[in-house]
Computed example of a mutant assay.
Amino acid sequence: MLKVHIDFFAYQDQTILEDISFTVAKGEHLALMGESGSGKSTLLKVIYGLLHLENGTISWGKNQNLGPNYNLVPGESYMKYLSQDFDLMPFTSVAENIGQHLSVFEQETHEQRIQELLELIELEAYAETKVKNLSGGQQQRVALARVLAQEPEVLLLDEPFGHIDNFKRNTLRRNLFPYLKKKGITVLTASHDPNDVLPYAEQTLVLEQGKVVAHQKTKKLYKSPPNYYTASLFGEVNKIPIKLLKAYSEIDKSVLIYPHELQVSDTTGLKVEIKNTYFKGNSYLNEAEADDETVLYFNTQKRLKSGDTVFLNVSLETINKRLSIEQGANT
């Protein structure tokens, strides 16, 4: 089990991380989410041992990560870190870049292992291509294969698909994360993309200004976000006064409602006027405004026109669920 406890971590007299504690079981996948500058990358660097931690401890089983003040070469032998800087050998081939990180004691299996990783990252046809001739996305895939070469026990991924085109990103995710699960590798993925998180991470930890603001099983966190910031990391979200949705309500609070949770009616509900409509492929995202100038976003299958008037409803079950989360957070 990976155990992380950080009282605080400061850099040049500025506190970057504060009061962070969590555990990740062997073979489990934890996602780190947060806006840019929230501390995701710094947290991964501290865990890996690139940055010295004075006020806290990082351990894997019985082994404690000692950091750069104790290790001449940063990082622990059981752990690999894929940063946003690829650190590849540009004048050697893709296969050579991967093979360099294989054990010298297992020469007879090198070709088989290189082929397995080339298939995983879908670069079999580029095995003999020099890395300097690859695109940024292809180089990122080679960097991924390199950190997987010796099958680490713990893998730290910092925006692992940031340079990869969407059509390749989807297949790579579906190749990579089940592969890591099958191998029993513990994974921490820092990402701002919910598509990296929702289908694959068992739990998600949300950082804001270096502090943990949410930590839950991923599905539960999505369905029951504790605050607007957390919900917004998964996509568009509305913060709507309950009295606007249910005029008879005596509760003076707002609830978080995703666009797909608002249902359209022609006759009853919250009256809104369409301002803009955005085509999303299999649906439309509509921007509308209520009489009190509250702006709302909701989905429809058919395109609505600017100036159209419709009525929006949300189930009492959804409202009560979101209210219970807020009450639980305040107790």
Rank of each mutant, 00 (worst) to 15 (best):
H163Q: 14
H163M: 14
H163L: 14
I164Q: 08
I164W: 09
D165C: 08
D165Q: 07
D165M: 00
D165R: 00
D165G: 04
D165A: 11
N166P: 00
N166V: 09
F167A: 09
F167M: 01
F167V: 06
K168I: 12
K168S: 12
R169N: 00
R169I: 04
R169T: 11
R169Q: 03
R169S: 02
N170H: 12
N170Y: 15
N170A: 14
T171M: 08
T171I: 14
L172P: 05
L172C: 11
L172E: 13
L172G: 06
L172H: 13
R173L: 10
R173K: 10
R174N: 14
R174E: 15
R174S: 14
N175E: 13
N175Q: 07
N175A: 07
N175L: 10
N175Y: 02
N175K: 06
L176I: 09
L176G: 04
L176V: 13
L176K: 11
L176S: 09
L176M: 10
F177A: 08
F177Q: 04
F177T: 01
P178N: 15
P178M: 12
P178E: 12
Y179C: 11
Y179V: 11
Y179A: 09
Y179M: 09
Y179F: 10
L180S: 14
L180D: 13
L180Y: 09
L180G: 12
L180A: 13
K181A: 09
K181C: 09
K181M: 08
K181F: 05
K182N: 07
K182W: 10
K182D: 11
K182H: 03
K182L: 02
K183W: 00
K183I: 03
G184T: 02
G184Q: 00
G184F: 06
I185L: 12
I185E: 06
T186C: 07
T186L: 00
T186V: 12
T186S: 13
T186G: 01
T186Q: 08
V187S: 06
V187N: 10
V187G: 10
L188V: 00
L188M: 08
T189G: 15
T189Y: 02
T189A: 07
T189S: 12
T189D: 13
T189W: 09
T189M: 13
T189Q: 08
A190W: 13
A190P: 05
A190V: 02
S191G: 12
S191T: 06
H192C: 08
H192V: 06
D193C: 05
D193P: 01
D193E: 03
D193I: 03
P194I: 00
N195F: 14
N195V: 11
N195H: 13
N195Y: 15
N195T: 15
D196C: 12
D196E: 15
D196V: 01
D196K: 04
V197L: 04
V197S: 01
V197G: 01
V197F: 02
L198E: 00
P199W: 07
P199I: 03
P199Q: 11
P199S: 06
